[in-house]
Simulated scan of single mutants.
Amino acid sequence: MAFTVSTPSIFRPTFADILRAKFDDVKTAIAQRRTYKATFNELAVLSNRELADLGIFRCDIKRIALEAAYGA
């Protein structure tokens, strides 16, 4: 009786897989930056009175934009 031992195949990503993953990371970073800039710019053009109506202080604009883009 013969026995064969099969070793589990280890997935090794190809160069194309690595490149695709990096490209996806760059696309995600660009989309997050675009969201940050859009949110920041939209809030920055509001007057202090309009911001107060929304319950936002001018010093909070950057934090709000960061939360909107990066979920921080």
Rank of each mutant, 00 (worst) to 15 (best):
I18W: 11
K62W: 05
K22M: 06
R63M: 09
E67K: 09
T39P: 00
I61G: 00
T7M: 13
A16N: 02
P8D: 10
T14G: 10
I10V: 01
K22Y: 09
R34I: 03
F40P: 01
E67P: 01
L46K: 15
T4P: 02
F57K: 14
R34S: 03
G71H: 05
K22H: 06
R49H: 09
F11M: 13
A52H: 08
R63S: 07
I56N: 11
D17N: 12
R20A: 00
R58H: 04
I64L: 10
C59A: 11
K62Q: 08
D53W: 04
F11H: 06
A38C: 10
L66H: 06
D25F: 08
A69D: 11
I10K: 03
R33L: 14
F57P: 00
T14P: 01
K27M: 07
F57C: 02
F11A: 14
R20G: 01
I56C: 01
A31H: 13
T14C: 00
L51N: 08
T35G: 02
S9N: 11
T14L: 02
Q32K: 14
N48W: 09
P13K: 14
P8G: 05
K62L: 07
S9D: 07
L43D: 03
K27L: 14
L46T: 02
M1E: 09
A72M: 04
F57E: 15
A68K: 13
I61C: 00
E67T: 12
L66Q: 04
T28N: 12
F15H: 10
I30P: 01
A44L: 10
F15V: 00
A69K: 14
A38W: 07
R20W: 00
F3A: 14
